[in-house]
């Protein structure tokens, strides 16, 4: 069995391993994007709004049971899944450098409650929601989604604390990061 088929043979592996890996791969690729690409995107991504919105909608879309079934059933749909999730990761990396705390809190919070709710629904469902997946695999995916929701929120918090954006009152940590000065001028009152 090829690794992709193995990942997609189980709902929990599909949602909790494959999908996060694609997003992470997209974010990793963004490191190698030339500066002018980011500059071009930045024009349409003030405060990281577009990137966060895009990533939030794409991740929400691939939590719909019918979307998972469509991805398993059709190679073309699966290609769209890969492309959209990688693009979400790519966009998120750039947007993270532009977004103010409040905007991030909104989108991360939104993702957290949505993933947790979907996770609870998956655990509660008495029937199979996906034609391609068994009930026990759906249960595990549901439990995992709740964990992912919590981990995503904690990871974001840790990232922000790590950059001294939440706890420290001086803006040194922010200004040392690329784009930090831009953000501090735009968002933080001096």
């Amino acid at each position: 069995m090829n690794p992709l088929a193995w990942l997609e043979a189980d709902m929990a592996r599909h949602m909790l391993v494959e999908i996060p890996l694609i997003v992470a791969a997209g974010a990793y690729l963004a490191r190698f994007a030339p500066a002018r690409v980011d500059a071009a995107i930045a024009r349409f991504d003030a405060f990281g709004l577009t990137g966060w919105l895009f990533a939030g909608l794409v991740t929400a879309f691939w939590m719909i049971p019918a979307a998972l079934d469509a991805a398993v059933a059709s190679g073309a749909t699966n290609a769209v899944k890969f492309a959209s999730l990688a693009a979400a990761g790519f966009a998120l990396r750039g947007s993270l450098r532009r977004s103010p705390l409040a905007l991030e809190a909104f989108f991360v919070g939104n993702f957290t409650w949505m993933a947790a709710t979907v996770g609870l629904v998956y655990q509660d469902a008495e029937t199979r929601l996906c034609l391609a997946y068994l009930t026990d695999s759906q249960q595990r995916a549901g439990q995992g989604l709740v964990i992912v929701a919590v981990v995503a929120f904690a990871a974001w918090l840790a990232l922000r604390v790590g950059r001294g954006y939440i706890l420290s009152s001086d803006s040194a940590g922010v200004q040392s990061s690329p784009g930090g000065s831009e953000r501090s001028t735009a968002i933080r009152p001096r």
Binding site: L53, L57, F61, I64, P65, A66, A67, A70, L129, L131
Partner: peptide, 25 residues
């Protein structure tokens, strides 16, 4: 751009769920 993203996502979700009526295949 954000409006475009929102519109595209709405269209894709509506297409998938037959107008938000069916969330499972």
């Amino acid at each position: 751009a954000a409006g475009l993203v929102l519109g595209a996502a709405f269209a894709a979700a509506s297409f998938l769920t037959l107008g938000f009526r069916a969330f499972t295949a």
